[in-house]
């Protein structure tokens, strides 16, 4: 038997297809290396990310959730990211209020041209999550 594997944070990353997902493509094309902890789910717009997705991911055992969209003013749908900013601010505040580590939920604006920034966002997130250990507060402790 192998010895116990060290803790690796599991991150669900909701990426806007117009910016952050394209930005992560650019990171790929530029071969910028970053940790593999974040698994992307590409969405049409950060504005389409329901607070329920975040709670659900945490419930299903995510150690961290990232939502990444277009910079303000750059939304492909004009104002989707403005909606995301307001809605997800409430999620962030609520999690923090309940005593869940605020580092567990993160939002970033990454444009299609910011491959390096995308990699850095993931790197920072993983580093910030590592000391916290597994997320067990909202986790329903299933497989």
């Amino acid at each position: 038997m192998s010895e116990q594997t060290p803790y690796e944070p599991r991150i669900v990353a909701f990426l806007c297809k117009w910016c952050s997902s394209a930005g992560s493509d650019l990171a790929g094309v530029s071969r910028i290396q970053y940790p593999a902890n974040a698994t992307p789910i590409t969405v049409a717009c950060s504005g389409g990310v329901s607070p329920q997705y975040i709670l659900s991911a945490l419930r299903k055992g995510a150690d961290g959730v990232l939502v990444s969209g277009c910079h303000i003013g750059d939304c492909h749908y004009m104002e989707g990211n403005m909606h995301a900013r307001r809605k997800l601010y409430l999620v962030k505040e609520l999690l923090e209020f309940a005593g869940v580590e605020p580092e567990r939920f993160r939002m970033s604006w990454v444009s299609a041209a910011e491959g390096a920034k995308f990699a850095q966002v993931v790197r920072d997130f993983v580093e910030d999550l590592r000391p916290l250990g597994p997320q067990d507060k909202l986790n329903a402790e299933r497989p």
């Binding site: 992560s24 650019l26 990171a27 094309v29 071969r31 290396q33 970053y34 940790p35 593999a36 990699a119």
Partner: peptide, 15 residues
């Protein structure tokens, strides 16, 4: 997408 978002940005084969 397992190229730009995976194969090209990671080195460890298992991971």
């Amino acid at each position: 997408n397992i190229r730009e978002q995976c194969a090209w940005v990671h080195k460890d084969r298992n991971v």
